[in-house]
Nucleic acid binder design. Sequence first.
DNA 1: TGTCTTCATGGTCATATTGCAATATGACCT
DNA 2: AGGTCATATTGCAATATGACCATGAAGACA
Lengths: 109, 109
Amino acid sequence: MTMKTKKISFYERRAAIAKALGHPSRLMIVDALQEREICVCELTELVGADQSTVSRHLSVLKNAGLVDTRKEGPMIFYRLRVKCLEGFFMCIENVLKENLEREEALVGG
Amino acid sequence: MTMKTKKISFYERRAAIAKALGHPSRLMIVDALQEREICVCELTELVGADQSTVSRHLSVLKNAGLVDTRKEGPMIFYRLRVKCLEGFFMCIENVLKENLEREEALVGG
DNA sequence: TGTCTTCATGGTCATATTGCAATATGACCT
DNA sequence: AGGTCATATTGCAATATGACCATGAAGACA
């Protein structure tokens, strides 16, 4: 395997995770799951989309390895598989803060 | 504005940033820019795609507020606008590590 | 002026994503 | 078995994305 090929698969794996987090509904879900595990029915209410749509978003998160499931009777509870999302969210907040400052600078100066 | 609308735009802004990082070429670019500012011609070589394709990726990163540009003669240098990407990458690595452990557990037992 | 380099943009095609409706699956209860 | 609730999956339409080619704009330089 060439170095370039290796590099590509390296970034592909990482980009897949970022991509899974790149949708507002999925971000909302992940954020809610930081508190506690939540069933699909409750997540569907939270997101406010069709149940089938939410189910698809959940499967995207699951395929990325971000969440895991637990069965309890007819219900399925989703929970975060990783606790490290703070770093991710902090990074995003930092970018948004910088963007805001830039906008203010453009208006003010 | 209702609470739900507010929440949506909250997550939309954050998801847009994650989405901008959700492509292997863009991740490769951002990673390279952690070292130093780089011109489009060099980034084009690095990524190994058409110059127009790389230019589009760069505009995605710029629109997300992740990078900024500096003109020098006919060249345009791109540089990171934020230094916080460590937290982002650490989070990704953490997820990948967890995923690897899960795969090993599935094989092993 | 003409040409070369560097980068961005419009056009076009192939593919992926997203959303909803409809249907299937699976568990539980009677 | 039949009924009901909670999820997953499939089909389809609309839209977004990503790649290339061709072209355009701007600076450097003879």
